[in-house]
């Protein structure tokens, strides 16, 4: 029992950053039909910005994370305006997703290698935002950074949730994800919504990358694992499902912890792949797949 509780706690803590990542990835795919393979690099930008904010600009931790989130938000907006908008005008509708995939791939390569060119292949980290550890339920001890990082993720998700469901702009985003042409007919400015959506998704990745800087140091290739894991979450829960992302993130967090403990670091990916293959065979709609959501099947 104690083991299970510990596992769940670690899973929740580890999963929280994947939830943030998967939320942005799912939002961008759901609204704009862009499979964003540069999402990990937005996470990386968040981490580098946090490093710069905390060490060079000596900002306090919370401001550092806000600075990083705002920075990635702006980067996301610029990418959308400069690259995806012209592509939207030129691409054939049937080829849009694959064209976007390749475009995000190009962006990812450029960002990754630019980071490597500027900062080199080294880890730029900090010892901690919030020194010390806390024991949870008296059984396990976690660093304050992980705990507060989790709290920040949860807060960001809540704010994002409120924005998406309660505000006018948030509802417009939902409307566009359901019916682009209909939304445009009732006066939604599509260009604005698309730019905002991409920027928001990027901002969420920025929060994920910056809040755990003490645990995952900034590094050119650091985006690979969060990207892989957030795609894992999306496949696990079924495309277009937003609510279950929280459960999906926790499951992936637990799986990661388990495979790390039993198989060692090198075999983690193999375990993940095995689980994904089983899901695709047994429940290709994702384990929370339901009618009405965009399915992963070819129409």
């Amino acid at each position: 029992m104690e083991f299970l509780i510990n596992l769940l706690t670690i899973g929740v803590l580890r999963g929280s950053s994947y939830i943030l990542m998967a939320l942005g990835l799912g939002l961008i795919f759901g609204v704009m039909n862009i499979p964003n393979f540069a999402h990990g690099e937005l996470y990386m930008i968040g981490a580098y910005l946090a490093y710069i904010g905390y060490t060079t600009l000596s900002l306090p931790p919370v401001l550092t994370i806000i600075f990083a989130a705002a920075g990635t938000f702006v980067v996301g907006g610029i990418l959308e305006i400069v690259l995806f908008r012209p592509l939207r005008k030129r691409s054939l509708p049937g080829r849009w997703i694959m064209n976007c995939f390749l475009l995000t791939l190009g962006i990812s390569i450029i960002l990754q290698n630019t980071a490597q060119y500027i900062f080199g292949y080294r880890y730029l980290g900090i010892s901690s935002f919030w020194p010390g550890t806390t024991s949870i339920l008296g059984t396990i001890t976690v660093s304050n950074d992980r705990l507060i990082g989790f709290a920040i993720s949860a807060l960001a998700v809540l704010i994002f949730w409120y924005f998406l469901t309660k505000t006018k702009t948030g509802r417009a985003i939902q409307a566009v994800s359901e019916d682009e042409i209909g939304a445009e007919l009732v006066g939604v400015n599509l260009n604005f919504i698309f730019t905002l959506t991409f920027a928001l998704g990027a901002g969420l990745a920025g929060i994920a990358g910056s809040s755990l800087l003490a645990i995952n140091a900034a590094h050119p290739m650091m985006g690979l694992n969060p990207l892989f894991k957030s795609w894992f979450v999306i496949i696990l829960i079924g495309m277009g499902n937003v609510g279950p992302i929280f459960i999906g993130g926790v499951i992936v967090g637990i799986l990661e912890t388990l495979s790390y403990a039993y198989f060692g670091a090198g075999w983690q990916n193999a375990v993940s792949l095995a689980v994904i293959i089983i899901i695709l065979i047994v429940a290709p709609q994702g384990i929370f797949g339901k009618k009405g959501v965009q399915s992963i099947w070819e129409k």
Binding site: L83, G106, I107, I109, N113
Partner: peptide, 18 residues
Amino acid sequence: PELRLIVYGFMLILVMVY
């Protein structure tokens, strides 16, 4: 090698969009 891949990335984006 970084510059090499950056060039690939730019060419890919240019071809994709334009």
